[in-house]
Every structure is written in structure tokens, then in C-alpha cells.
Design a protein around this nucleic acid. Sequence first.
DNA 1: ACAAATGTGTCTAAATGTTGGACATCATGC
DNA 2: GCATGATGTCCAACATTTAGACACATTTGT
Lengths: 172, 172
Amino acid sequence: MVNGKSVLVIDDNPAILTAAKICLSGVFERIVTLSSPEKALVTIAQEHPSVVLLDMNFSLGVNSGQEGMMWLTAIHRRFPDTPIVLITAYADVRLAVRALKNGAADFVTKPWDNDELIRVLKDAIDKAGEVIPLEQVESEHVRKVLNKCEGNMKRAADLLGISRQTLYNKIR
Amino acid sequence: MVNGKSVLVIDDNPAILTAAKICLSGVFERIVTLSSPEKALVTIAQEHPSVVLLDMNFSLGVNSGQEGMMWLTAIHRRFPDTPIVLITAYADVRLAVRALKNGAADFVTKPWDNDELIRVLKDAIDKAGEVIPLEQVESEHVRKVLNKCEGNMKRAADLLGISRQTLYNKIR
DNA sequence: ACAAATGTGTCTAAATGTTGGACATCATGC
DNA sequence: GCATGATGTCCAACATTTAGACACATTTGT
């Protein structure tokens, strides 16, 4: 319990689900498991897990991670605010990079270290829970674009879609 | 030439630098190389490369990638708008994930595929060059926070730091 | 080196957006 | 069913944003 957070674990290996349950019980208030990602979308809609732990390989013998990547994309498209941590037995840098670029919150390899897994899941939840004031998002973006324009305010204002004077005011 | 873009390659292995030069000539207008990252910051300040290709392992015998990670952080902190692509001989998922979280644009492993490396560098440049209008950044963030509040406009407005009515207007 | 083009800082006045406050109306839970 | 909190709507004060104008740098092309 401890924190009122829940986790959805999706893996086709029952032993992994059991191990995950043991590892994560006491840390999360609710642990939901699925042995196949088919019902992932409906389950997430029902359970609203704080984080999803998704295995990448389901079809036995297929270890390209294609299927996990597809599910990652599908879930992330439907629930962009739910962090998804991927897990795979086949450590593949290419795959990990692609996963992160496709919206995965993190990527861990089997066999996992329990403490690390817990830390990663907690981090993912924390990061997803952060809320940034609108003004901060605005000024950060303004500064970024201004940088890219090497200080040229006219061009920066143009790219930002605001008037030159407004940009001038925003940076006081 | 072709595109007016430049690349800075940092690797302590001269053979790699030569190979990179050959691979990338004809694609980039200027290819600058460094055999050690010590001068990376000054070189970037002078040359303003479109992208940096940074090796992760410099101290011979040390292959943890710690040094590359430190340089990644240092460069990214000083030039947050310059995309940095990491390259390493020791495929390590953990390291790749950490690198991406520390601001790396991409992560490739040696030996590289020339076409893939070119594609990755181009992608990194393209992505870094994108400029998003301020209004779009604003509305995307508003929708995200609104989602997290499950549609509760009062709380969302509060978290965003704007008045309820303003939020109401923004989503018309 | 000059002229042309472009960017800067500053100012207006009008249009538009933001604010807290107020109010009746719905949901919700207890 | 009553209390709490959210919604949709209005208002009038206040603030921001805007296009336009202008003198003055700074950059660019030749």
C-alpha cells in the first residue's frame, strides 16, 4: 500500500507475473496482471494504473520486440499520460532506443534487480505526475526558440507566432 | 555539401575519425573532428556544429561510459539546442537509456552501419531544427494537464497557474 | 566603402485577453 | 436531502497583444 499507486504488469510468462507480484507487493497498493496484451487497453481504461510494466516479447520464438513495440505505441497513443516501462529478456540497444523514442518511460532487462525495478517504476510515476505551470512552459519554449535564432527577436517572434513587441515584453 | 550542415565527431580512435570522415563526407558540408572531448566545449562554441557525434569511452580500459556520460551532460548543459548522438562499442541497454534521459538525441553502437548513422544524424538535426508555435505548445500542455485532472477544469486551471475562466476560454 | 536591407528600441491607440467576484444550476457523497 | 464542489455564464477592472510608425543601429551585397 504505502502510496496508493497501482501497477499493471503484462507478461505472457506466469512465473514472471508471480515474481513481479512478490517483488512489487508492499510497494504498490494494487497489482493487476495480464498474461497477454490483448486486453491491455480495456484493462487500463478500467483500472487506471499509475504505471504499466509491459513485456516486449509475446509470440514465442519471435524476439524482435515488434509486438511489444506495437502495444507500446497503441497504449501510449490511447493513454499518453500513463507511463509505460518496457521489459525484455533480449538486451537490444536499438530496441531500447526505439522504445524510448516511442514514448516508453523506461526500459529494463531481465533478469531484473528488484530494487532497481521498483525505483524505475516509482520514477516513471513521479515524472508522469509532475505538473508544470503554463507560464513556465511558455517561457522555456520562448528561450529555446530565441536561442535557436541566435537572439534575433524578429525571427524568433515570427517562428513563435507572436508579435515582436510581445516577445520583447516576455523577456522584459 | 548538399545541405549546409556540419558535424563534430569526437573519438579517441584515429581510425574511427577517418572512417567517420569518409562515411560522412558528401553528406555534410563541414566535418570537424576531435580526438579527445577536452576541447569539445570551445570547439562547439567556435564551430556551431549542427550535430555532435560523441564516443562514450576515452580512458583506455574504462568502458563504463562514465566519461562519455559526463561529457554528454556537460555539452548538453552548455548547448541544449545542439543534438548529441552517442556512439559506443559496448552495447549496454542501461547506458543507452541513461544517455537518452540525459539529453542524448540518439545512441548507436559500433560497428555502425553507414546509412543508419547518416540517417540518425540527419534525424537528430531535423528534430532539433523544428520550431513549434507558442500557441501550440500552450494548448498541448493545457490538454495534457486537463487530461491528468480528468477534465476537472478548476483543478487544472489551478495547476496551470491561470484562472478558471481563462482555461475555459482557451478550450472554447 | 557604400547603399540597401534588416533588426532594435521605443511609442502610440485600439483590440483582445485575463482577472476576481458573483450567481443559478448541476453532480456528488454521506 | 443537504452540503460541497464544479460548471456555465456574466460583469467591469485591468493587463496584454497588436499593427503601425519612427529614428537609430547592424548586417549584407556589391
